[in-house]
């Protein structure tokens, strides 16, 4: 059953794609720019995972947790170092885009210098089981694991956004930084934290990406960013929770193409991105159009 396999596989990987992209969406929602270094941080997370597993013989998923403190620090450092000058410039949005592109290049270069440019991969068996049977067909274990991790990740993001004070402040900044500031919210602090959390989500998604993408190399960064951007454009920009829906749509489209027209499957993310942007820029699940 090719169709069934493609769709179930699409939902499983798609939930992971949502996880891969959610940090980009959080950063876009709060800081109003596209973090082009997102993919490079994902790749960095993948290398960290490889090192943990191969050199230290630890559980590869541990990388997803230990990335938390350095990500927050990196987010704060980048935020406080660049935004004061950027916000005073003539075209902050474009300049942020270019600036984070530069940061992406620097991260990519450092990754290459530290880990060489050799492609790294981990066998699926590193995670324990290698495949799982669902409705009579076998799926790679890391697909199931990706989906199984994405669910609590989105649950945590939901709780953070809708059940905590910081989350309330975050949503206030998302809807209007000026209004948020006027009611006493420290917009800079919220933004710095969100950038850090966004980077952390990217790095921790990287620990699964090395399995799901079948390996990693430093030059993947920008392709991962574009892929993640496609997910959040489909789901709706500036609405982190909707990223999971965007991921599932892209996952299903990609897996269907893999099943029926494999040589064209690579075009799917790009084609879908262009189509959604031109036809429904608010995303399939977004309600408001935000012209950035």
């Amino acid at each position: 059953m090719l169709l069934e396999f493609a769709l179930i596989g699409g939902v499983l990987t798609g939930m992971y794609y949502g996880f891969l992209a959610v940090g980009l969406n959080l950063v876009f929602g709060v800081l109003r720019f596209v973090n082009l270094a997102h993919g490079s941080v994902v790749v960095l997370g993948s290398y960290l995972t490889w090192e943990l597993s191969n050199t230290w013989h630890l559980n590869p998923l541990l990388a997803g947790l230990i990335a938390f403190p350095p990500s927050l620090v990196l987010g704060a450092v980048i935020f406080y170092a660049v935004t004061p000058r950027l916000s005073r410039s003539a075209d902050p949005e474009m300049l942020s885009l270019i600036l984070f592109f530069g940061i992406a290049q620097a991260i990519e270069a450092i990754t290459t210098i530290v880990f060489t440019s050799n492609r790294r991969a981990l066998p699926g068996s590193t995670l324990g089981a290698s495949s799982v049977s669902i409705l009579g067909q076998r799926y790679p274990f890391y697909w199931v694991l990706g989906a199984a991790i994405a669910v609590p990740v989105f649950g945590a993001i939901y709780i953070y956004l809708y059940r905590t004070r910081l989350g309330l402040a975050t949503r206030a900044v998302m809807s209007s930084p000026d209004d948020a500031a006027s009611v006493g919210i420290d917009v800079k602090r919220v933004s710095a934290i969100c950038l850090g959390v966004g980077l952390f989500l990217a790095a921790s998604a990287g620990s699964l990406s090395i399995f799901i993408r079948g390996g990693t190399d430093p030059a993947q960064g920008i392709a991962v960013t574009t892929f993640a951007f496609t997910v959040i454009v489909i789901g709706g920009l500036g609405n982190p929770i909707s990223s999971i829906a965007g991921g599932v749509v892209l996952g299903c489209a990609y897996n269907l193409a893999q099943a029926y027209a494999p040589s064209w499957s690579g075009v799917i993310p790009y084609g879908l991105l262009l189509a959604v942007m031109l036809i429904r820029p608010s995303g399939l699940f977004g309600s408001q159009v935000r012209v950035a």
């Binding site: 885009l97 991105l273 262009l274 031109l278 820029p281 950035a292």
Partner: peptide, 24 residues
């Protein structure tokens, strides 16, 4: 038609178009 998009939307959409073109 991409020119209807602004700022970073345009920048990334053009990137996607180039990637789609090379795959084509």
């Amino acid at each position: 038609p991409l020119l209807r998009l602004r700022g970073s939307y345009f920048a990334i959409a053009s990137l996607a178009a180039a990637e789609a073109l090379v795959l084509l």
